[in-house]
Design a protein around this nucleic acid. Structure first.
Lengths: 88, 88
DNA sequence: TCACCCCCTGGTATAAATATACCTGTCGGT
DNA sequence: ACCGACAGGTATATTTATACCAGGGGGTGA
């Protein structure tokens, strides 16, 4: 295999990331945020809904700036595997 | 067009990011770091040389953890456009 | 009620890029 | 002579990023 399909954990991580970004957008217009982050509104929506689970680094950097969410916080959300905290 | 080709600035950003990651790896073995970050050694080398200019968010997150480089620092490196500081 | 308008969902489609693997070769050490 | 790190080429399945579509709800105004 030349490129592994995304693992279920990564898809889950993408869902958490997207949900966090959407809640961070709060009341702001989706098009306004997307254009400010220099991505298309379609792409922003797919990221928020988790249909693009692993966006490019630069895309997340721009979104974190536009939305005012610290990058480490997004990293924690992305890494946090619910199965781990469950197995305490 | 369905997806824009990478802009020259993004390729430059990828070069800076890769160079920073390589210098952060310092003396460590490339395979050791790659496996710790759960990516293939080939991929790590391509990121370090800038041939993968915009890696996935999770890939950079794992590398920043393994190498001990703070994520915001990588973001700054990625964003810093030399043309901007030149135009002071 | 009806007509808009905006946000949102989920489907299809497609060029460009990632992530992986293999290969040939160079350069320093040992 | 060998080995590990490195560069760069080719190849390919999977994914991103973009765009379009048909439609569902929730307002608001005529």
């Amino acid at each position: 295999m030349v490129r592994h399909p995304l693992a279920p954990e990564q898809i889950e991580a993408g869902r958490r990331l997207g949900a966090a970004l959407r809640s961070a957008r709060a009341g702001r217009s989706p098009v306004e945020v997307a254009l400010a982050a220099e991505i298309s509104p379609e792409t922003l929506r797919k990221i928020e809904t988790g249909r693009l689970p692993t966006p490019a680094f630069g895309t997340i950097v721009r979104l974190s700036e536009v939305l005012g969410v610290p990058l480490p916080e997004l990293a924690i959300i992305w890494r946090s595997d619910p199965a781990l905290s469950e197995a305490s």
